[in-house]
């Protein structure tokens, strides 16, 4: 399971495997809450073995998009094709059964239960005579596959670090063998080492053939693991980039909608050289 360190993040898909196929294809998704159009005509594609980062400022519609995909909100219009067929996702359970697993930002783990109990919560084996041994063995298998660094599965979740909890939450989402995994801000509350751990985990999910949607504010994380970046701005698609051929500045300008913004001004004060003209062209092209 150990990944070779040389694996280039950007080079993985693109016909490297013959069995790469489109997992998710959203077309023209719109959703409004009253007079507020949270999403307008959103298109999104995700292939197997691909990490797609969705970035955008606060209020750009990231969370709404995630909720549409995880079955919390129904879209007002637009179509969702998942695994080659047209689907509707009326409830979170329906999304889960289709194979869309979401790891929300707050992880939703029970601090007083141990790792095995959390992993199998709500789907224990043997409801009237719990198969503790079977569940523990499966838990170890799963954590080994993710090369997770968890010393013991029989300690309460409360004693794990933030990165380890994230690992448990992701491992739990894998139990149902999903095709698509949505990670909402997985590194937001983590330290440097733990962030690296979670990013490794994301790469491992890709190696296992899952499609991954990564919501993040952190450009470094996005550049480190994502294959493609989809930018949302005010509820609309505002550019889509392959990570290999885009600079952080270009992504930021697509997020903010202007090249002249607080972020670039601040950078240009530091080194004038980074204010490149091609950031402008890409930004214009994205419009």
């Amino acid at each position: 399971m150990n990944a070779s360190p040389a694996t280039d993040t950007a080079a993985a898909p693109d016909g490297a495997h013959p069995n790469i196929h489109t997992v998710l294809s959203m077309r023209g998704i719109s959703k409004s809450f009253g007079a507020v159009a949270a999403l307008t005509d959103i298109d999104l594609d995700v292939s197997s073995s691909e990490v797609v980062a969705i970035v955008g400022d606060n209020g750009a519609g990231k969370s709404t998009l995630v909720k549409v995909l995880s079955g919390v909100h129904a879209p007002d219009s637009g179509t969702i094709d998942f695994g080659g067929e047209r689907v509707t996702l009326p409830t979170p359970m329906a999304a889960l059964e289709r194979g869309i697993a979401t790891v929300f930002q707050d992880l939703a783990l029970c601090d007083n239960l141990d790792v095995v109990q959390n992993l199998f919560l709500g789907r224990e084996r043997g409801p009237f005579r719990l198969d503790e041994v079977g569940m523990e063995v499966r838990a170890w298998e799963l954590l080994r596959q993710l090369s997770a660094k968890i010393p013991s599965v029989r300690i309460p979740i409360a004693s794990l670090s933030g990165g380890q909890r994230q690992t448990v939450a992701i491992a739990r989402s894998l139990l149902g063998d999903p095709k698509l995994i949505i990670l909402d801000e997985p590194t937001a509350a983590l330290g440097v080492a733990q962030t690296a751990e979670v990013l490794n985990l994301v790469e491992r999910l890709r190696e296992r053939g899952h499609g991954v949607i990564l919501i993040s504010h952190n450009m470094e994380d996005v550049k480190a693991v994502a294959d493609r970046v989809v930018v949302l701005r005010l509820g609309r698609n505002n550019g889509e980039f392959r990570v290999g051929d885009v600079s952080t500045e270009e992504i930021i300008s697509a997020i903010t909608g202007a090249t002249d913004n607080a972020v670039t001004r601040r950078r240009s004060r530091g080194d004038a050289a980074s204010q490149t003209p091609d950031a402008i062209t890409t930004e214009e092209a994205a419009r």
Binding site: M93, L96, L107, A108, L109, L121, G122, R123
Partner: peptide, 8 residues
């Protein structure tokens, strides 16, 4: 909340 989201 975690219990609810686990489908309990």
């Amino acid at each position: 909340e975690a219990a609810r989201r686990s489908g309990i």
